[in-house]
């Protein structure tokens, strides 16, 4: 359905308040975890699509309250596939080199134990314009 006014657009924006704050600061009124997987040309070339599928499968199997979202390239091509884990109440953390075979480890350590996976930790080195 069409959005016909600035007010209607802003109302629509509001529906996603939690999603935005979770991705930006790690705050949310829900306790649902979100995992962002970089799925762009560079990611595909090193199997990010397999990572994505494996993540969805593992999360379902282990009954974790989390959703996996495909996103574009965050720019760290040298560490693809990259994955950002947004756990409510914690700052979002970026991980690199998360090929399919690292998915179990990532889910077990980061999503379940909620610890940082030092080896694959990727320092986020940018600030962005917030509109």
């Amino acid at each position: 359905m069409a959005i016909k006014s600035l007010d209607a657009l802003k109302a629509k924006q509001k529906e996603f308040k939690d999603q935005v704050s979770l991705r930006n600061e790690g705050t949310s009124s829900s306790d649902r975890i979100e995992v962002l997987v970089g799925l762009a040309t560079c990611g595909f070339a090193v199997g990010a699509d397999d990572t994505f599928i494996a993540l969805e499968k593992k999360i379902k199997e282990d009954n974790i309250n989390a959703k996996v979202t495909p996103v574009g390239c965050i720019g760290y091509c040298h560490r693809e596939p990259t994955v950002q884990v947004n756990i409510p109440g914690q700052p979002p953390i970026l991980y690199g080199d998360i090929t399919e075979d690292k998915v179990t480890l990532l889910v077990d350590v980061v999503l379940k134990e909620q610890k940082i996976l030092e080896e694959f930790y990727l320092e986020k080195t940018f600030d962005k314009a917030v509109l």
Binding site: A45, C77, E80
Partner: peptide, 19 residues
């Protein structure tokens, strides 16, 4: 350039990209 320079050198066969 197919735009996957981050994985250079790159070879493709059909849609499949090898980095």
């Amino acid at each position: 350039c197919i735009g996957a320079c981050g994985l250079a050198p790159v070879v493709t066969v059909g849609e499949k990209v090898y980095g």
